[in-house]
Simulated scan of single mutants.
Amino acid sequence: MKKSSETRDDLANKRQTAGGARDDASNRRDRRADQRDLAGQARDDKLDMSDLAGQARDGAGDERDNAGDVRDHVAGLRDSAAEQRDRTAEEFDSRNRSRSPNRILRSELARHEAASDREAAFQDRSASAQERTEAQRDRRAALADRHVGARQRRLAEADRNTASSDRAAGLSERANAQLDRSSARIDREVSAVDREDASIDPLTGVLLRRAGFAALSRDIARARRTNIPLVVCFIDVDHLKTVNDGQGHAAGDQMLLNVASTLRSRLRASDLIFRYGGDEFVCIFPDSDSSFGELRLAQVNEELARCPSPASVTAGFAELRPEDSSEDLVARADSELYRKRKLR
């Protein structure tokens, strides 16, 4: 039984350790999940900036296209004006075959202005082409920004999915940790029952010798700490061997059971009983002296005498001394019992 309880305690400790390890693992997973969420948020912020940059580039491209359209329109107007000036100069020349220097100058001036208009129109169209080239460059840059943004979104989504998986795994780890702790608690409870069973006499239901001496040591320490008296009673069941030999061991067992039951009924809740040997019991009376113990044992013998199978006990008492160990105290009570038997 002792080995079983120790094995259960070891198993409980292992389960408790496993529970702690699972909690640590779940905490690590939560931290990783937080980091991934932060990374996802950073990626989202970055792609929002990329989107804004793309929109700005698209806007700039639209403005450049509009400027190019305006320049093309102005160039068209200049070409039209130049053609009109050429026509005017040709008509003027055809109407005035014999031209004066003044008229020649006016015709040349019209053609010069037409050439200037065409040059300006050419420059406008060149500037328009440049605007459209810049607009195309802006749109390509905007498209690249959007590609980067889309990739960042995919990575952010992957970060969030991984964070969600980490949190789910952390939750599972915590559930397993709780299961480990529950199992450890059950193991300890079963171990405590095993220990209790190992410390109880299966026949009489009182403490066995080893557990009884442990309890006596605690009571002695308490008595010394609180400066109260304590007395030990060593009990021997009278004529048990005769009953065993004459009526059988079942009758002897019943006698022992009757003695233990009577002791429990007549002693206080604070008093302890343990079985020392085959027909021997030890009683511990805290905050009491020998006269109190003798009174209680007298009541026990009176009740045993009224049983269907009458019995009796003989007892020796020893009061706690400053130098006593638990073994010394029981030995002195046993010696007192032996002295009483010799006097009979």
Rank of each mutant, 00 (worst) to 15 (best):
R321S: 11
E6K: 15
N161D: 11
V231E: 06
D219G: 01
R167Y: 07
D166K: 09
L297I: 15
A67E: 11
D238L: 05
E319P: 04
R209A: 05
R15Q: 13
S116F: 04
G149W: 01
A184Q: 04
A168W: 03
S183L: 13
E196Y: 09
V259C: 08
G20P: 00
R185E: 13
A150M: 05
A127T: 13
S290P: 00
A144D: 11
D93A: 15
D324A: 05
A127F: 07
L240G: 06
A120P: 00
N227H: 13
N161R: 14
A177T: 07
E119D: 14
R57Y: 09
E323N: 10
C233R: 05
A81I: 03
D124S: 12
R344G: 11
D37V: 12
L240E: 02
N258F: 00
L263H: 07
R209P: 02
R97A: 06
R57W: 03
V74T: 13
K46Y: 08
R151P: 00
D238H: 10
K241V: 00
A21V: 08
N161V: 05
T242Q: 14
F281D: 00
E63K: 15
R106Y: 09
A110C: 02
V300L: 07
E336A: 15
D253A: 03
L263K: 06
V70L: 12
L337S: 07
R167T: 04
A163N: 06
A214L: 09
T162R: 14
D289W: 01
L297E: 00
A21P: 00
Q84W: 04
F274G: 02
L230F: 08
D279M: 01
D69L: 10
A141H: 10
V74L: 13
E189V: 07
R8T: 00
L52K: 15
A53Y: 06
D138H: 15
V232S: 08
V330A: 06
V243Q: 05
D117H: 13
A42R: 15
Q84R: 14
E327Q: 12
R8E: 03
Q136Y: 01
H249S: 01
Y338A: 06
L230G: 09
D201Q: 08
L179A: 13
D197Y: 05
R339D: 09
G149I: 00
D145Y: 03
A81W: 03
R103Y: 02
D166R: 10
S182V: 06
E157Y: 02
D117Q: 13
A168E: 12
A39M: 09
E6D: 12
S126F: 07
G20A: 11
M255A: 14
G252L: 03
Q123R: 14
A223T: 11
F292L: 10
A215I: 08
A42Q: 15
D245H: 08
A53C: 01
D328Y: 02
R225E: 10
L216H: 10
F281I: 02
E336K: 11
K241S: 04
A214K: 11
R154E: 13
R224P: 01
L109R: 15
E131Q: 15
E196H: 15
Q41S: 14
E63I: 07
A158S: 13
S172L: 11
G54C: 01
A89N: 10
A33C: 09
D34F: 02
E134T: 13
L52G: 12
A169Y: 07
A305N: 12
S98T: 10
E189K: 12
S80Y: 08
G61P: 03
Q16K: 12
E319H: 08
H249E: 04
A175K: 14
R87K: 12
R218W: 00
S182A: 11
L257I: 05
